[in-house]
């Protein structure tokens, strides 16, 4: 098993394309070509054991697809995902992947959709235990479920209830208990608090931090909310149209954003400190990922775009400890 600080998850050249063409007959009759949506288009990053690595970006940037690729809900079009040094993409069968899958679990955004309404909470939480045959008898299952529910701040008797008897925040606690039941080392959290009210969000974020400290968990945290990202993350990757444009540790990313898109995102955060800071003018919208702009995908919205940005996609290169994909930064213009 890897030591703290060693990568637990490594993603190399990961890409996932979706075929979004119309049905064959409609294509033939209307003379339309096949359409491919490049949801994730070649990204690399590594998550170190014990840290919280976050992906941030606007809708359609591919952050949730990355999460689903890592836990195996999608197969990658190309690229590799290594978990604890083992290339999961090379393990063909589900049976071969199962021991690794147990060690990674996922928490989803919508706690109303991710729990089976017909199951009692104890069965929901025990499902991974049964699926991975982690406990032998019914009695130990009950004990483990009670322990898990207490761990996430619910009472052991809550196991007898159904999901509809709980509020959104409590349901998200159930999702967390379920995710923890297989004793995972790595949790993928896809917008875990976006559907919750702010005071409940604070409860869940605090719970996740406590659990991380107590159980030594590693998180991949996905959110569009930069203030939340700033609060939870050790390192952050900013995604735009299926690619990473900046990867840096959270402190330097938020104090000294380098990529123009990161700066734009930071500019859009409402000013709760009431400093009277004027928001930078933000123009344009995210282009369609079906027909992304050539060159750097951000160039149509970028105030610093030059000729090279229109033609050539920038590579993710290291500058002062951060990884940045920008010709401007590379040329020293920014």
């Amino acid at each position: 098993m890897a030591e703290a600080g060693q990568p637990i998850v490594e993603v190399v050249g990961l890409a996932r394309y979706f075929d979004v063409s119309k049905p064959w007959l409609a294509r033939v009759l209307q003379g339309q070509p096949r359409l491919t949506l490049k949801a994730v288009d070649g990204i690399d990053f590594a998550i170190r054991r014990g840290e919280t690595f976050s992906l941030v970006g606007e809708s359609g940037c591919g952050k949730s697809t990355v999460a689903r690729l890592i836990v195996g809900l999608h197969r990658p079009t190309r690229g590799h995902i290594r978990f604890d040094g083992v290339d999961l993409t090379a393990l063909g069968t589900r049976a071969a992947q199962a021991p690794f899958r147990r060690r990674m679990q996922m928490i989803f955004q919508d706690p109303f959709a991710s729990l089976n309404p017909r199951w009692r909470v104890r069965d929901i939480v025990a499902e991974p235990l049964r699926a991975f045959a982690l406990v032998a008898t019914g009695e130990t299952v009950a004990g483990r479920v009670a322990e898990l529910l207490t761990q996430v701040g619910l009472s052991a008797n809550d196991g007898e209830k159904y999901p509809h008897e709980f509020s959104g925040g409590q349901r998200q606690r159930i999702s967390i208990a379920r995710a923890l039941s297989g004793n995972p080392e790595f949790l993928v959290c896809d917008e875990p608090t976006s559907a919750l009210d702010v005071s409940v969000q604070a409860q869940i974020l605090n719970l996740m931090k406590d659990l991380q400290r107590r159980l030594g968990l590693t998180y991949l945290f996905i959110s569009h909310n930069l203030a939340v990202i700033d609060h939870v993350s050790d390192r952050v990757g900013v995604m735009y149209l299926g690619r990473l444009c900046e990867v840096a540790d959270a402190q330097s990313l938020f104090r000294r954003p380098r990529h123009p898109y990161t700066r734009l995102l930071l500019d859009t955060i409402p000013d709760l400190a009431m400093t009277g800071r004027a928001r930078g003018p933000v123009a344009g919208e995210v282009p369609s990922p079906i027909a992304p702009p050539p060159g750097c995908a951000f160039h149509p919205r970028c105030p610093h775009a030059g000729e090279r940005c229109r033609l050539e996609a920038p590579a993710l290169l290291e500058h002062d400890g951060a990884l940045i994909a920008c010709h401007g930064v590379e040329e020293g213009r920014l």
Partner: peptide, 9 residues
């Protein structure tokens, strides 16, 4: 409520 909102910086 104000204390529970994560604020940048």
């Amino acid at each position: 409520l104000m204390g529970s909102i994560p604020i940048m910086g």
